[in-house]
Design a protein around this nucleic acid. Structure first.
Lengths: 342, 342
DNA sequence: ACACCATTTGTAAGCGCTTACATCATTAAT
DNA sequence: ATTAATGATGTAAGCGCTTACAAATGGTGT
């Protein structure tokens, strides 16, 4: 059974190896500053004791955690999964660990998560979107924690960001829709309050309509949370309208999946009777039938670039270069010409 | 512009409020032990300085972090999302924070994540499935970190767990498949190495076949990673077989979605020509067409129960009661009788 | 032989917090 | 009035680590 051992500390390792704690610490952090023979002995002691450094103590003493925090609106669907995975991979290559938490699209929760992450010693923070109380940035400044905004690129925003123009992306999609011949357009948007991405997407559609000389009347808008069921519900409402819109543009692929499901349930053929579009091009978009015409966002690229930039900011080698990622429309079966007016 | 302030500490708050650091600490942790008037003053100082306690220091001094770690195989798809969300919600209600990391189904990565989480002071750990090097449990014991296994319930396993019997669940589904008349059965399983859940699911199918008096020859098995594309690929392989299986049972809904996608691409009608089944009943299962016949796993319930149990273990009020969650088969359109042998 | 420098290692002062224990002020019981 | 008990607050010792600085060691050039 052996004696009940508790977790070994640096001091235990030092004693075992017959050196000072400073030397052990150096072996672990700056091995090149310790002579080979000593290092051997120390590492062996580490091994035989099964020593793992205490993170809290390390953070406290070094005032560095090699940890990056990210607060995303939701983990429920795949919208952020891919980008975040790439973000994490890139961080790991650079010796950083990622701490993720989700705010459920709630600003108050986000503020709290930010404080938590900072309290935990995050060296830098990844935030989604620009819309947020300025006090938060002050708080981050005071604690000297650099932050980077992703998933959104707005030139006039002061904060560093790596993202794409939600407005331009959606505008391009809306132009495709118009080119297909649609004139009665409906949109199921995510909630725009406190969500600059959702708002910009609506804005993008508006711009396209305006450029095409269509008035406000051409667009019917519903706002609803980004959930499948909500998308379905909104679609049902839209289909009850008279005259019925010929296309339903959705704020993201999740809403579009819901719309598609409801269409099937209602016996409405897509795209023959109504066209549907999405946004994000997550895996789901290619699986549903009909497959979704949507906007492809290079999430991986965005994640990797964000990681590189944020690490550079943390290490003081960059002040935060904004970067705009380009998106493109992916044409699949869910968008077609409107039905003949009969 | 004001002077450049750096983050305030407990000492700053104490000075501002005219009390000792001990009193400030008590105000924050055990407010009932501080008299009203003093508490007022302290909280006001906290507020006006914008003080946030330093987490690392707190963990170090208190040897408690109120943090629970969870290592899940992947964040890429929704398999674990719902259960984990419930787990997190329940933890939060009890004053704990969740730290999540993913191992990408790699045992070595998992081991490393466990060490990291322990080093970060996690008070308890949620692990998925039982299959893992016993040394890991020794390590956890030594560090006195309780752990709970979820997503799998195996009576003979020694470790506390909250999960379901993957074998029974899959067996029940296989029985439905047999009842529908299928005799040439194929299965696309996830990789079974180091994954007791995947292995048990295969086992469940085997049991059902055996009980029905069918030999080994009735089952064709392919193992592949849990990814949509892999599911599609495996499905294609299976369809090339002669004679062709009449049903493809998939290790989870993600693989099934891939199979369905490929079937559509190959012009094979589901369920008329081939039936397909899934496992998990994630949102995706109801969205694809045809909708998937699958095994419903009450992820939320499992997550909540796991959280309650693990917190009890951490707080020493439970030794880890194993709990078995029950699952049931959900019948949708993807499973039907086999085609007439013509 | 010496001074000088580079390299390796040790010493010890914190990092910001919690908490056992000591102190002091009240109040209740005798 | 005296004592004991109770409650509020302060004092100070760490928690396990990093790192500035000091000390010791060995190699070079003269």
């Amino acid at each position: 059974m052996g004696k009940t051992r508790s977790a070994p500390t640096l001091t235990d390792v030092a004693r075992e190896a017959g050196v000072s704690t400073a030397t052990v610490s150096r072996c672990l952090n700056t091995p090149e500053r310790v002579i080979e023979s000593t290092r051997q002995r120390v590492l062996q002691a580490v091994e035989s004791l099964g020593y793992t450094p205490n993170f809290a103590a390390r953070v406290m003493a070094a005032k560095r955690s090699f940890t990056i925090g990210a607060i995303i609106p939701t983990m429920d669907n795949a919208i952020f999964a891919r980008g975040l995975q790439a973000f994490q991979d890139e961080l790991r290559e650079r010796g950083y660990t990622l701490l993720v938490s989700s705010s459920a699209y709630d600003p108050e929760a986000e503020r709290e998560q930010i404080r938590t992450l900072v309290a935990r010693g995050a060296d830098g923070l990844l935030l989604i979107g620009h819309a947020r109380d300025p006090q938060i940035y002050e708080y981050l400044d005071r604690h000297q924690v650099p932050s980077l905004v992703a998933w959104s690129y707005v030139p006039e925003a002061r904060r560093p960001s790596v993202g794409f123009s939600n407005a331009c992306a959606m505008r391009a999609l809306a132009e495709s829709v118009l080119a297909a011949g649609h004139r009665r357009i409906a949109m199921i948007s995510g909630l725009t309050e406190g969500n600059d991405r959702a708002l910009s997407r609506v804005e993008g559609v508006r711009q396209a309509l305006q450029a095409a000389g269509l008035g406000e009347g051409a667009l019917t808008l519903i706002e609803t949370p980004y959930e499948i069921d909500k998308g379905a519900e909104a679609f049902r409402q839209l289909m009850a309208l008279e005259p019925r819109p010929t296309v339903v543009m959705c704020g993201n692929d999740v809403l579009a999946a819901g719309a598609l499901r409801e269409a099937k349930g209602m016996g409405i053929a897509v795209p023959e009777q109504v066209s549907v579009t999405g946004f994000d091009d997550i895996e789901l978009a290619a699986i549903v039938s009909p497959a979704l015409t949507t906007v492809h966002v290079p999430h991986r690229e965005m994640g990797r670039k964000a990681a590189r930039e944020l690490v550079a900011m943390v290490e003081g080698t960059s002040a935060g270069q904004p970067e705009c990622i380009s998106t493109h429309v992916v044409t699949r079966q869910s968008l077609a010409a409107p039905p003949d007016p009969s």
